Simulated scan of single mutants.
Amino acid sequence: MSPITWPEPLYVVDVEGNGAAPPDLVEIALIPMVGGQPQPADALSWLIQPPVPIPHRITRIHGITNAMVEDAPTWQDIAPRVRSLLEGAWIAAHSASVEYGVLTRHLPGWQPTGVIDTLRLAKATIGGKGFGLDALIERTKIDLSNVAGTRHRAAYDAHATALLLNHLASQCASWDALAAKAVPPGMPGRPSASPEEGDTLW
């Protein structure tokens, strides 16, 4: 896909929570895509001090401990910066309803220009079985050797998702074709459905 077809700004986003219902943020990462290429040197990530502690069962998933966030900024401290970055931006995430839901709840009044879901895009472009991030990375043979950090940390997962988005985009003829496959129904950025690419795709 030609780089000129990609919208900017576009950020691949990943969040980690504390297991509350609804979850409080304990980490967020944003990695910009320029011309369809991840820009890890310009990535931003923050540990966040949540209003209630992180249970041990959640720490076992992402590895973020209460000691790690004890002196971290609160969401109120970083929300203006995150809002300024995401104002007018497209966002992308794997199983994007999570990030979309968390961000719209934590940034009242904010809406992205569009939302790309790499899980949905993978189902539409490569099919098969196994659509978790780990399974898709294995299936597509994407090289993560230069991705810093560890799995289930926000910066690592955002970078891995950005590489997956770049790979899947090669299966699409244009940005509109990608968006028709990847924007979930009811979320911003979804083109008018065509008979071939309506909401009944799967």
Rank of each mutant, 00 (worst) to 15 (best):
M1C: 02
W6M: 08
G17T: 11
N18C: 11
G19P: 13
P23Q: 13
I28H: 01
A29T: 12
I31M: 14
M33P: 00
G35A: 08
Q39K: 13
Q39H: 04
A41H: 06
D42I: 00
L47N: 08
P50Q: 13
P50K: 09
P51C: 13
V52K: 15
P53Y: 11
P55H: 15
P55D: 00
R57V: 04
H62T: 04
N66A: 10
M68S: 05
E70Q: 15
P73A: 09
P73M: 13
A79V: 11
V82T: 03
R83G: 10
S95K: 03
V98H: 05
G101S: 09
V102A: 13
R105V: 05
R105P: 07
H106F: 10
G109N: 13
W110R: 15
Q111M: 15
Q111V: 12
Q111F: 01
Q111K: 11
K123V: 12
G127K: 02
D134K: 15
E138A: 10
R139E: 02
R139L: 01
I142M: 00
D143N: 09
G149S: 09
R153N: 09
A155M: 06
A158T: 06
A160I: 02
N166D: 00
H167Y: 09
L168C: 04
A169D: 05
S170P: 03
A173I: 14
A173Y: 01
S174H: 06
W175M: 13
D176W: 00
A182E: 00
P184G: 00
G186T: 14
S192K: 15
A193N: 03
S194L: 08
E197T: 13
